[in-house]
Amino acid sequence: MIGNLPTVLAQGGVDWISFDIGRLVDQFWYNTVNGLAYGSIYSLVAVGYTLVYGVLKLINFAHSEVFIVGAFGAYFTFQFLGYESGGIAQAPLVETIVNLILALAVAMICSGLVALTLERVAYRPLRRKKAPRLVFLITAVGASFAIQQAIMLWRNPNPELAIQLIAPRPLFEVFGVSVTNIQLTVFLAALVLLLIADSFINRTRLGRGIRAVAQDPDTATLMGVNKERVIMLTFIIGGLLAGAAALFYIMQIPQGVVYNGGFLLGIKAFTAAVLGGIGNLRGALLGGFLLGVFENYGQSLLGGQWRDVVAFVVLIVILMFRPTGILGESLGKARV
C-alpha cells in the first residue's frame, strides 16, 4: 500500500543519487581534458544556433540535422577514398592528413548546403509572409524530423560501421592526464575555425553586416545592408562550422554516424549557446567548452547515467534565471 511509499523514497534517496566528491576531485583533470575536447564540438555547433538566433531571433531546431548530414558527408568521403570499416587505416601520415582535409571540406560543404536549403525552403517563405515566430519553430521541428527520417529510410536505424583514419594514441600528459592525438587535433582545429569565424564577423564588411542586422534590422536595412544576404550568410557560416564539428565528432566517436546522432548533440550545443549568451559568438565558444566540462564533472559527481540530466538542468536553470547567458545576448555587442 501507500505505506510503502516512505520506505521506497527513503531507499531511493540513498540509492539512486549520491554525491561522490572524492571521484570529482580525483578525476578533475581527466574530466577537464576530455570535456574540452568534446566541448569544442559543442562550440562549433553552437555557433550555428547563435548566429541564426542573433539575426532572426529564431531557434533553428533543425541545426542538429545540418550537423548529422555533415557527419554522413565525411563518412562517405572516407568510403570514397577507399577506407574500409573495421580496421584502422594504415596510410602514411601525409596521405591521412590530406584525406582528412578533404573529408573536412566535404562535410562543411554538405552541412552548409543543407543549412542553405533549409533557409530557402523552410524559413524564407515564412519570412516573406511575416509569419509569427511560433510558426517558424514548428517548421523547424518538422524539417528536423523530415531530414532525420529521410536519412533513416535511406540508410537504416543502426549506426554506420565505424571508419577511423587515425588511431588514437596518447601524446603527452597534462596534470597527470594523457591527451590523445585526436583530442589535441580536434581541440586545436576547432579553436582555429572559431577564431576565423570570430574575426570574419568582427573584421570584414560582410561580418559587420551580420552584426548590424543582429543589433537593429531596420536601421541596418536603411543603412544599405542587404538583409536577405546577411541571413543567407549566417546560415552558411553556421552550416560550415557544424560540418567541421561533424568530422571532429566522428574522429572521436566513429560509431556516431547514425540518423538521430545529431539530436542530443544539437540540444546540448543549443544549451551551450544559451549558456554563453545566445546571439553572442564568443559566448557560444565559451558555452561549448563550459558545458563539455560541466557535463563531465556532473557525471563524475553523480554517476555516468546523470550526464544528460546535468545538461538539461543547466539549460533550464540558465533559461530561467539568466536567459541572457554568461556573456549576454546580442551579436552586435559581441565586440569586447
Binding site: Q27, N34, Y38, I253, G256, G261, S300, G304
Partner: peptide, 20 residues
Amino acid sequence: TEEVKTNQREFSAVVGTIEA
C-alpha cells in the same frame, strides 16, 4: 561497477573510472 545507457556513444566518464 558502472552502468551505461542504451544508445550511449560517449563513455569518457566510465572509462575514467575504469582507468582510475
